[in-house]
């Protein structure tokens, strides 16, 4: 009897629609985030994360409606990330029905915001998203740095030190994405995930690179993550969340079935 490792499907939402493509055979409107979220809930997802990638601030209001709709029909934890820059943004999302918000670039530009958000709403609802890229070369000790703008812009901040700092500021959880692996379907950056997970007491969610069910298992067993996040492996009907959990259970990982 112990805590189950979590599987978190992630939906990229642009102006109220799921993008990156979602193909379920029996969902007519695959771009509707509410339908997709309901489907993942039925499959046994432990949480759902919405990443709002809407470009203009004007259209950001639509994610609020999405969260409101989902929260009134799906009774599992919901996380919303993307464009969270102020205490007001956090409040808006929590009031809409989100349980946690993921803070990404705003943490880099203004680390005090993380502390302010945690002090105001509690650490339990503040996730800090860390986008990291390996900067060490072969034969050098591993080193990762934080990148912004989808991995295009370097910050010079050491990812491990940053993770510890975010924990100190009160973050309740870390969402660690390898920008080297994201979209490659070649598995998580396990060394990155493990190094961060072993450096902090708070839970780490592994993200970026899942292509096979075994990648999810590796994130837990080798990456020491508490939860694994994936998008396309579920979106295209390649695997259901249920199948992923069965695969994890076979590896001796405790899951909620």
């Amino acid at each position: 009897m112990s805590l189950a490792k979590r599987i978190i499907p992630c939906l990229d939402v642009d102006n109220g629609r799921v993008v990156k493509g979602v193909q379920f055979v029996d969902i007519r409107d695959a771009g509707n985030p509410i339908e997709v979220a309901k489907r993942y809930d039925e499959q046994g997802a432990d949480e759902i994360t919405f990443l709002d990638i809407t470009a203009t601030a004007h259209d950001r209001g639509t994610i609020v409606h999405v969260v409101e709709e989902v929260a009134s029909q799906v009774f599992i934890p919901l996380t919303v990330g993307g464009g969270i820059r102020s205490v007001e943004d956090v409040r808006t999302m929590l009031n809409a029905g989100a349980d946690k918000v993921a803070i990404n670039s705003a943490a880099i530009f203004n680390p005090a915001f993380v502390k302010e958000a945690c002090d105001t709403f509690g650490s339990q609802c503040i996730v800090v998203a860390i986008d990291a890229k390996k900067v060490s070369i072969e034969n050098e000790p591993d080193k990762w740095e934080i990148f912004t703008h989808g991995g295009r812009k370097e910050t010079g901040i050491d990812a491990i030190e940053w993770a510890k700092k975010m924990e100190t500021l009160g973050a309740g959880e870390l969402l660690v994405t390898s920008m080297d692996k994201d979209g490659t379907k070649s598995g998580f950056d396990l060394a990155l995930t493990r190094t961060i997970a072993d450096s902090v007491k708070i839970p780490v969610i592994a993200s970026g690179g899942v292509g096979e069910l075994s990648d999810l298992c590796d994130g837990i067993t080798q990456g020491h993550a508490e939860a694994v996040l994936a998008a396309s492996i579920f979106h295209f009907g390649q695997h259901t969340v249920q199948e992923a959990k069965q695969a994890m259970q076979k590896e001796g990982i405790e899951v909620r079935l």
Binding site: M1, A4, R6, I202
Partner: peptide, 10 residues
């Protein structure tokens, strides 16, 4: 074990 105790437990 991690803290907070976050997730699905029995």
């Amino acid at each position: 074990l991690k803290m907070p105790h976050m997730g699905w437990n029995q």
